[in-house]
Design a protein around this nucleic acid. Structure first.
Lengths: 240, 240
DNA sequence: CTAACATCAAAACGAACGTTTGAACGATGT
DNA sequence: ACATCGTTCAAACGTTCGTTTTGATGTTAG
């Protein structure tokens, strides 16, 4: 029973607990003492294994995001191989990008809805180290998907596509964050989106699936919406 | 020169500075000492005028949100009066709700983009007192607009409309937050969305207008997107 | 004039923060 | 057996946090 306890047990337990506490309270409002005591490890364990609180947050994301973005690139590779040079359909691209993410919400071993909520809530954090971390973690995948969308929508100005990708990311980010401060969704047939103190599994799996079913058509509708009337061409086009 | 300095000068200066610092750093990462020293007031001034740091944040929002939501209700009143009992067009409803907000970004006396960014970044904060505050501040306006959308889209299931309203709020929230951690928009022809350390006016006014021009068609396209195929009626069918 | 209010500087409050230290522990390899 | 290395531990480090207090100084209104 002391098989691989050596190098991974404490680390992994810290990451799991930190993931949940950062999601519940946010980064700044979650103390090292809260993390280490909830994980039943020594206070110094985080600094020993990760170096600092900032590095811990980055590692919480890295262990999920590298896998996720690898999957996203593979999904796009597969689609483009099947298309044999032809442009992809926008729905395929969105499915590869957002579907791959949302399916993580159904699998607790990939973080489940806890990680999705944490991701959605952290994407709007203003802290510098978070933004640079995400920028690096997402650079490649965003670039690939942007180019795929450019090819899929050759008649839409590229700047417009970039804007709409931004809007789609926002709708997704807010939806998976599940804070719902305005109580729009809470109380409907849907049930609560948050489920703050619960376990991992019970209704989160079905919630993730319902969310995907509703979000994907919305995003596709937004992406393909009629262009604003003021668009004739891109004027100076400094995007050489 | 001692005209109305009495009851408003210190209070207003604290609110202005707090609005900017909360936007730049987030609530938790902004200290009372940073606020009071930047506002050039005594450290005790915040507690004297507002009672606590939490109450200060609420007041920062209240002085803008009560006006905003009043305008939103008035805009809806006017539209419904003109329609004389007929259902409104979805585009009218979205214009009244989102247009009224986005136009605040063009007016520095209403907070400008600083307030819009702060709002977008705070809507996903998990802190309890923030969520209950927003819930109360938005309850009436959300209810009115939800009912207007129900009437405007009688063939769409109400639960679906609620979901899409949620998605629209997310896209708007993320867009006005302007964090853009994934660097989707940054570097394009658009210029930077954030402009962290700048003044109020220079490019924020035009940015707010461009944002509105792009966001509104996107939201409308998402709202009117085809329904997911699995909708015949709402079954109980919890997929046991 | 008086009383109430607003602002100030300065200091302190206890609490909580992230991080560091140095010793002890337990397995491993020679 | 001893030495080594990675890990864990209790305890303390210095700092910063939000808040309160005290007393003095204008300023305003009855």
């Amino acid at each position: 029973m002391s098989d691989q306890k050596n190098t991974s047990d404490t680390r992994e337990r810290i990451l799991d607990i930190a993931e949940r506490l950062f999601m519940d309270n946010g980064y700044e409002a979650t103390s090292m003492r809260a993390i280490t005591s909830a994980a039943e490890v020594n206070l110094a364990a985080v600094n020993y294994h990760f170096g600092s609180k900032e590095a811990l947050l980055c590692e919480v994301f890295r262990r999920r995001l590298t896998w996720l973005n690898h999957q996203r690139l593979q999904a796009l590779d597969k689609l483009e191989a099947q298309a044999a040079g032809a442009p992809l359909k926008p729905s395929q691209i969105l499915e590869a990008f957002f579907g791959t993410l949302l399916r993580m919400g159904e699998d607790p071993s990939l973080g489940g809805m806890t990680f999705l909520r944490l991701l959605g809530r952290t994407l709007t954090e203003p802290a510098e180290f978070i933004r640079t971390f995400f920028a690096g973690e997402y650079a490649q995948v965003i670039d690939r998907y942007k180019r795929a969308l450019f090819r899929a929508l050759p008649d839409v100005p590229k700047a417009e596509i970039v804007w709409r990708l931004h809007f789609m990311l926002g709708a997704m980010s807010y939806a998976i964050a599940g804070t719902d401060v305005l109580q729009v969704v809470t109380g409907c047939e849907v049930g609560d989106l948050a489920g703050e103190g619960g376990c991992d599994d019970p209704a989160d799996t079905v919630l993730a699936r319902r969310l995907a079913e509703r979000l994907m058509p919305f995003l596709l509708g937004g992406l393909r919406a009629p262009l604003p009337q003021f668009k004739q061409q891109e004027p100076s086009s400094k995007t050489v």
